[in-house]
Write a protein that binds this DNA or RNA. Structure first.
Lengths: 202, 202
DNA sequence: GAAGCACATGGACGCAATGTCCATTTATCA
DNA sequence: TGATAAATGGACATTGCGTCCATGTGCTTC
């Protein structure tokens, strides 16, 4: 809500951090109020009382801006520590899906944008790599607890979890039974067989 | 290559199948010659010597047309029957990735388009469901051979394979070691432990 | 303290691409 | 043979991304 009265002026021969902040704030607000449809560079610039030039001086493309908005919103990851791997994955995915549902699936739009905007790929790559690292922490805890089969490839499992999450995001299936999903993803990697917790399938 | 000399005319009070065929052929040709960049409704309509109205009478949106083009090109699936599940998955994914690389990853564009074009979602859903069915056939063969662990969920594994394939497509990683990828996806579901075949990781 | 400079900013514009409207053309039916 | 129904074509409206140039502001140098 950093709404400046009228318009923003130059503060000299260097970028104005207030402009960037206002742009990100405004983008997040538009996303909350109008959804994905309204989230255009024109609307963001207009409502942030900045020009599109300013916007493009900070981020090289629409996709890059969207990713910045998303990363700012995502600051708290929401990984769980329940004591069991399936529980951790179920709750963590549940938090993630709830987050995705709450912001109109911006992240789906970012993935989509990356398919045509090649400047986005590297940024998205490193973003994904960070997520892999976070999931690996969850998996290492499970490994310490002795839940995983011998020789389980933590990186492969982490990527698998993310792949499944993306898959559900992109196919608009964010409302599935999370215990079931976590079980399906993780249980082949577990040492001892588990009973399935949740109920209905998709 | 059904190139009509000049222009196409109405054949009366019913749609002209030649128009649809010419549009699909032309779209495939443009895709092969100019890649994804040139694959616009304007270019397709122009080069197919049809109007955009005609195009939109046959398909409700750009994405729907792209999916039709893709499905027409994909008629031969390329699923393999090597005698082992990991081999089947490795070769089948290899064929799929080669196909995707060959057409400039149109399918990635279709997935991207589905994120904003909601008329595409149902079509993409049923398309995906067909792929699930095909993969399940591969998996059933493995089950008959006794390769899978007891109680393995075939549908979950089929979805997992597709999820991984999409994931690699969307992150522009179509050149990975396919034996390695197939192993990572499948081996937790196998009854007996396997040695890994391929070499380097991503 | 004053003048020039470097660079961010704003507004307007170019361009490309999607989807729509209406007049025209064609075949069919009475 | 004339009227009707529907597809087709060309032009157009609209939207949205990215760019250009004049303007303004603070910093630097003399």
């Amino acid at each position: 809500m950093s709404q400046v009265g009228i318009s923003r002026r130059s503060i000299g021969a260097r970028p104005n951090p207030e402009a960037a902040a206002a742009i990100l704030d405004t983008a997040a607000r538009i996303l909350a109020e109008k959804g994905l449809k309204g989230l255009t560079t024109e609307a963001i610039a207009r409502e942030a009382r900045a020009s599109k030039s300013t916007l493009y001086r900070w981020w090289p493309s629409r996709g890059a801006l969207l990713l910045a908005v998303y990363m700012r919103m995502k600051q708290d990851h929401g990984y769980a520590d329940t004591g069991s791997l399936i529980g951790d994955v179920a709750v963590s995915l549940s938090n993630l899906f709830a987050f995705w549902r709450g912001n109109g699936s911006v992240f789906a739009l970012i993935i989509a944008e990356a398919q045509t905007d090649k400047t986005l790929l590297p940024a998205l790559d490193s973003f994904r790599e960070e997520r892999v690292g976070e999931w690996k922490e969850v998996l290492e805890r499970a490994q310490v607890r002795g839940e995983l089969r011998a020789g389980a490839d933590l990186r492969a499992l982490a990527e698998s979890i993310i792949a499944h999450a993306w898959f559900h995001l992109l196919t608009a299936r964010l409302h599935v039974d999370m215990n079931r999903l976590a079980f399906d993803i993780v249980h082949p990697y577990l040492k001892s067989p588990h009973r399935i917790a949740g109920g209905q399938n998709t």
